[in-house]
Design a protein around this nucleic acid. Structure first.
Lengths: 233, 233
DNA sequence: ATTTTTGTGTGTTATTCAGCATAATAAGAT
DNA sequence: ATCTTATTATGCTGAATAACACACAAAAAT
């Protein structure tokens, strides 16, 4: 893999990470207590039932986190991006993982061991506060999703998912293409529908001029219309 | 209301509350910085869009927390019991409320003002840790619910909801009757189905001898069977 | 006590969407 | 290069469940 020479300290110094609240000394301490892992596209980072080993920070790449439901049907509950935590829910709940994480692209992840994280949290209240805020936001997101996925119709669910992907990963340089390339199956598993219906509905959106499709590249041509479809349900 | 004479300090000294990790001095501080509120059955405690004023501790009574979805359809996302927080998600996310809380029974709630809570959290890392653990568990629950409500069939969803209510509120002295009395509509809003279907499916369960119904009293006669229905989907 | 409202129960119809089949294409593997 | 497998695409059918209509009971208001 080409990013073998990734400088892992970057993710702790990254201004977008929650670690900005730490003192230089605390950051130094964390830097001395983590290891890095590299994952190829499609690789499993952790599985439902695994015990969390530490706090994983996604330094590079994109990750889907999903649960297996009825008949093995996947439901994606979160999409992670750098620099964000993965697997932190189980760690802080003192549980085994209740979801599986798979690399959507080649990934780099830094793991700070549990004891070191907890030690810094006890020494610096602001870190805990930041983590609490992250959890609170994430819980709000999860509640929103529950309502959306149960109540909206297929078109609304798909529209909302596309907007969510755009908000999470942003656009490519053309300001149109959503900066993540998912299989139709993943789009379906994110939106609570069958793959067939994801394909069908994406085609319909394209026919209506709301988006354009080029393989896995999805361009949002009419965001207003997409938002309207999402709101209508 | 008969519990006007409720001693509000109880909820901070309650051994089941997260405040057990506090020092006597910190508890004393909190006791000097809270007020109490009484709500009649059916009353709104807070509404979607309201700004959270402090940390609300449900001292007595039962509360449903729901979101309004497509066409005003309610989805219950949480059921609170004493001694637990309510409205804490919005408080810690620094957002306005994204859900509405309504008293299922007459309730007593203690509100510790935001600044005081934050001050104690900064002085005692264990409180933050406990709150983080609560959030992490709650998020896991929310993910579980998302999968259940989207993937299981009506019977499975209802069965799971009944088990959830039993686990949350326990049994009456007969060891059969679920210790909460919800309208059919609330059961439906908890289980993502229409009221008609909640009524129908409850009747079917009763015919099958899994439960027995007496108005809003629901007795679980065959928990194993109910669990099996829940697992099958 | 009587009216009004709210909640419960049941049957019928309409709609959405999952499930399945099949084909065409693309991507990997040998 | 060719075989194999995964992904994308489209059509058809049936099942699940929402929506609606209506009757009746219970609770609340007058």
């Amino acid at each position: 893999m080409q990013e073998r020479n990734y400088n892992a300290d970057d993710c702790i110094d990254n201004p977008k990470s929650v670690f900005t609240v730490l003192t230089p000394k605390e950051k130094e301490f964390l830097k001395q207590n983590y290891t890095c892992a590299f994952y190829k596209k499609g690789e499993i980072i952790f599985k439902e039932g695994d015990k969390p080993l530490g706090l994983m920070i996604l330094a590079e790449g994109k990750v889907k986190i999903f649960k297996e439901g009825v008949g093995g049907r996947e439901q994606i509950v979160r999409m992670a991006k750098p620099v964000g935590f993965i697997g932190y829910r189980a760690l802080f709940a003192e549980e085994h993982h209740t979801a599986t994480a798979v690399a959507i692209e080649d990934c780099v992840s830094c793991i700070v061991d549990k004891e070191s994280v907890f030690r810094v949290m006890r020494s610096n209240a602001e870190l805990s506060m930041s983590i609490i805020q992250s959890f609170a936001s994430e819980l709000g997101f999860s509640h929103d999703r529950t309502v959306t996925l149960t109540q909206k119709h297929i078109r609304g669910r798909l529209a909302e998912s596309l907007i969510f992907l755009k908000d999470t990963y942003g656009y490519e340089d053309d300001n149109l293409t959503i900066k993540i390339y998912l299989s139709r199956e993943d789009v379906a598993n994110l939106s609570n529908m069958t793959t067939s219906n994801a394909i069908r509905t994406l085609s319909t959106f394209a026919q209506e001029g709301v988006i354009s499709i080029d393989g896995r590249k999805i361009r949002i041509l009419d965001l207003t219309k997409l938002e309207r479809i999402s709101e209508l349900g």
